[in-house]
Amino acid sequence: MSRQFATFTLDGARYGVDVLRVQEALRAHTRTPVPLAPKGIAGLVNLRGQVVMTIDLRSRLGLAPLPGDAEPMMVVVQVDGEPISLLVDEIGDVTDVEEGQFETPPDTLPTALREVILGAYKLDRGLLLALDVDRATAA
């Protein structure tokens, strides 16, 4: 059975989210920081009049922050009926994956990453890590 994944990159690696969960992908908006918020919450953005919480995926995955001058992109996903935006480095294309290509994450992955990764799809062009949206967005 084939599924479609919306892909994006973080620190050079390719990640994907089931395309049905993705509302849109766009350039990053100005974020309003939320003091006292749990780590990984990058602030609030105004998405056409809707206040949307933004998750910094780099921080969530335990990666180093994006260099200061680089501008991140936003992938807006639906979680429990509410849109949440994910900060990513770059947005890729929509890729077809087969269940047969799936494999659970190896034990050697860092914990921060293992928590939010469902597993990897072994594609011809390299690995595509499937992001567990619900866990990645849970505070």
Binding site: V34, L36, A37, P38, L44, V51, M53, E82, A138, A139
Partner: peptide, 9 residues
Amino acid sequence: PLSARLKAI
């Protein structure tokens, strides 16, 4: 409204 995660603050 705020996301539930932020309301908890």
